[in-house]
Amino acid sequence: MSRIAFLGLGHMGLPMAKNLVKAGHEVHGFDVVPAAVEAAQKAGIPVAASGADAVADADVVITMFPAGTHVIEAYQGGLLAAAAPGTLFIESSTIAVDEARTAHELALAAGHRNIDAPVSGGVVGAENGTLAFMVGGSDEDFAAALPLLEAMGKRIVHCGGTGLGQAAKVCNNMILAVSQIAVAEAFVLGERLGLEHQALFDVVSQASGQCWSITTNCPVPGPVPTSPANRDYQPGFAGALMAKDLGLALQAIEQTATDAKMGRLAQQLYAAFAAGSGATRDFSGIITDIREDRV
């Protein structure tokens, strides 16, 4: 059993923390949002008065924050100083590769260990313990973190050295965004050609166009009852978060001088979606903007 400090108890973090408790670990949480604190307490997870208090006696610190600036600020603002020497920091936010490497260097300089371990699978994956973890870090630190990651996820991949977990995540989400747009455009085209949603789904879900964006995150109500389209596009994975992740992808595209035309276009479309109706809707809801020619 490990004593774990889990910082960031939002829609993803809280179910991840609960799965660690189910696996027999002692978890103490912290969040700056009162509603998240209340939800954690109702779930039976003790919440510390501050991040520094949460990490003081922890063997492992897991952070799940909105952006890289929050991670760096938290590390520099007292987390690293408050933790016992040799604490393993698992950074599960989705942040830029260079931010992950900065966090790693800060942790090492303070006498700690660190891996980047962003996730894929959304809220449903977090609740069911079926997340995919993409991990960057040393073999030794990956091995130390693996039992904890297995309590929260179904597929854990060691992608290489520091920052490469984030590199895999940004590539994955670029693919996801492009495929979700393509699926949405296909359903709108099908509508205008007179195809029923179910008929198109029955064909594509078993044909060469098959992908997660249709079989799990189908953007129209009906064919996949558990998809966000059946609950008025409640996330899920919000459009604002997809826009943020694609901003990280665009940053990586430009830093590496990669000719990624579809990635750039997806970033533009999701930025427009998030700036309009889609900030708090599931990212599959971009189909409504495509249908109404708003993106």
Rank of each mutant, 00 (worst) to 15 (best):
G8R: 07
V135D: 13
L88A: 00
H70E: 13
Q198V: 01
G44Y: 02
D31M: 14
D259R: 05
K169D: 11
V33K: 09
P228E: 12
C159M: 15
A49H: 10
L195K: 11
T226A: 15
A177V: 03
V119W: 02
M1V: 11
T63W: 06
V21F: 03
A110N: 01
A240D: 00
I90L: 15
A266Q: 00
A83R: 04
A249L: 12
E196P: 01
M16K: 08
Q255W: 00
P85T: 08
M174N: 14
E292G: 01
A275N: 11
N173M: 12
F237M: 04
H28Q: 13
T216M: 12
Q41P: 01
A43R: 02
V32K: 14
P225G: 12
V33Y: 08
A145N: 04
T226C: 04
V183K: 07
D139W: 00
F133Y: 02
T63I: 03
F6M: 08
G122P: 15
D245V: 09
S93E: 02
E127S: 08
K261R: 11
D31T: 10
D57I: 00
V170R: 04
V97P: 12
I181T: 13
L164M: 14
G137P: 06
M262W: 13
G153K: 03
S277N: 15
R294S: 05
L241K: 06
I72D: 03
N217A: 09
G236L: 09
A182G: 14
F283S: 01
P66G: 04
G77M: 07
P221D: 02
A199I: 14
A207S: 13
L200K: 08
T94K: 02
G263M: 07
R155H: 10
V33Q: 06
F187K: 12
T130S: 14
A107W: 07
T87W: 05
V295D: 00
L108K: 15
D289I: 07
R264F: 06
M174E: 09
H25D: 03
P46E: 06
D282A: 08
Q251A: 15
M174Y: 14
S120I: 05
Q268E: 13
I115R: 00
A82Q: 07
M1N: 07
G160V: 10
K154A: 08
A132N: 14
A40P: 00
M1A: 14
D289E: 13
P85V: 07
A274W: 10
K22F: 00
M262L: 15
C218S: 10
G161P: 05
A229G: 09
A43Y: 01
T130Q: 06
V220I: 12
G190H: 03
G24M: 10
A144D: 13
S50N: 10
A260G: 01
